[in-house]
Amino acid sequence: MNIELCAPPAREAKRRRLTRGARRQLAGILFELPLILGLIIFTAYPVAESLRLSLYRYNGFDTNVFNGFNNFKYMFANESQVKEVLRVFGNTFIYCFVSVPLSLFLSYFLAMPLNKNFKGVGVFRLLIYLPVIIPSVVSALLYKDIFDVTYGVMNQIFGGLGLPQGTFFSHRSTAMATLIWAGMWNLGGGMILWLSAFKNIPASLYESAKIDGANPLRRTLAITLPMSTPMIFYNLVMNLINSMQIFNSMMITGGDGEGPEQSLYFIAVKIYNEAFQFFRMGYAAALSWILFLVVGLLTVVVFATSKWVFYGDE
């Protein structure tokens, strides 16, 4: 009885919703059309094609021969190639896993004293942020000049301080450390992130913690850090992915992009060299897929171990 009474209006509503639903579906697809096309043409196709190419010997012009897994075998079995591949991945990992956590860590200590309101705090923030504004290609050139062994200013400063002269980018033993050090001029970026994160923490939390007698260290560990974990997580993920692909190092090394004894040779630069200098495009595609897998794995690991991220009310 009840059902029958309800049926006609329900059916009518359903029909109306259906047409509206269809309209909505059409609108949704139209709004996403550029994105969908872009994903197909400029992402899905090249990714698949790159996988195919990795199984071919291809020089970009005429030679295009199926090669099985020889590209991968070459990568892992040819003695000099293994060495080079391990070196570029090693360099990339060192750069990535030192500079990303280090800058997050150091920028925290930069942000802490600037999180209070006192006269001139804005000026300090602004000036510390200044190097971040410089486009990264320019800062690479800048670091190259600052750390130039003969003409650079850093060795003069070292001399003035009574320190021995540094070799910086010109020797394999110091090139990587110099690059990471120079990158720390961009701590202002991390500082801004920490400051924003601090700002989002309700002051009431600190007040009640103070009343409970929690000391500053305790308040940092129990309130500031947990409440900042979404920011830390987002930046860890994005910066790890980005720094795995470091390419602007070519602005420092110039030429072959390898640096002294390949000490600044990164995987993205090697892929570029293989594809566009030596025209071993199949091999370069194979390398790029290895990079893809490594980055993917890294992302999965970071996400899988993200229990420490605190999303508040969500």
Partner: peptide, 26 residues
């Protein structure tokens, strides 16, 4: 909508180097 959004976000971790070579050929 959900799957499309997920695919879009996943492209964030795709290194530019992967698509670079096929795109060059294209």
């Amino acid at each position: 909508r959900g799957p499309l959004f997920a695919v879009m976000l996943a492209t964030l971790m795709l290194p530019a180097a992967v698509s670079q070579i096929p795109l060059y050929v294209l």
